[in-house]
Design a binder for these strands. Structure first.
Length: 113
DNA sequence: GTTCTCACA
DNA sequence: TGTGAGAA
């Protein structure tokens, strides 16, 4: 198994998550979380929606979707919203930093041209 | 389809 | 903590 391949895979996954953006309705359908709950969480600071400058419809990227799923699970396990938000945010930061390091560490292995 | 606010459990 | 309804 190529470790480099895994690293690249992780990077791609993270980037892909950031690129996929959907409306609140899609998010509610995907996560199974009602739109009011999503707005409620956003109000609480659980997630940041990319409000379209002109449009009013908030857009959420899959990173936020994953975050919502994580938060929902944590709350289900007895955590409070605030605690869940804190932990998930920290997790995201850690992952982001780790991936950045990985990106720097990965010596482009196979440039087969 | 989306947004917001007020109020309740 | 999460939801309801009405209004725009």
């Amino acid at each position: 198994m190529n470790e480099d391949a895994q690293k690249l895979n992780a990077l791609l996954d993270f980037d892909l998550l950031k690129k996929l953006v959907v409306g609140i309705g899609e998010v509610s359908e995907i996560t199974g979380i009602p739109t009011r709950k999503i707005r409620y969480w956003e109000e609480k600071g659980a997630i940041q929606s990319e409000t379209n400058t002109e449009g009013s419809t908030r857009r959420y990227n899959y990173l936020n979707v994953k975050k919502m799923l994580l938060i929902q699970e944590m709350i289900d396990e007895g955590f409070t919203l605030d605690a869940a938000i804190k932990k998930v945010n920290k997790r995201m930061v850690t992952l982001n930093e780790a991936f950045l390091k990985l990106a720097d560490t990965v010596p482009d292995t196979e440039d087969n041209e």
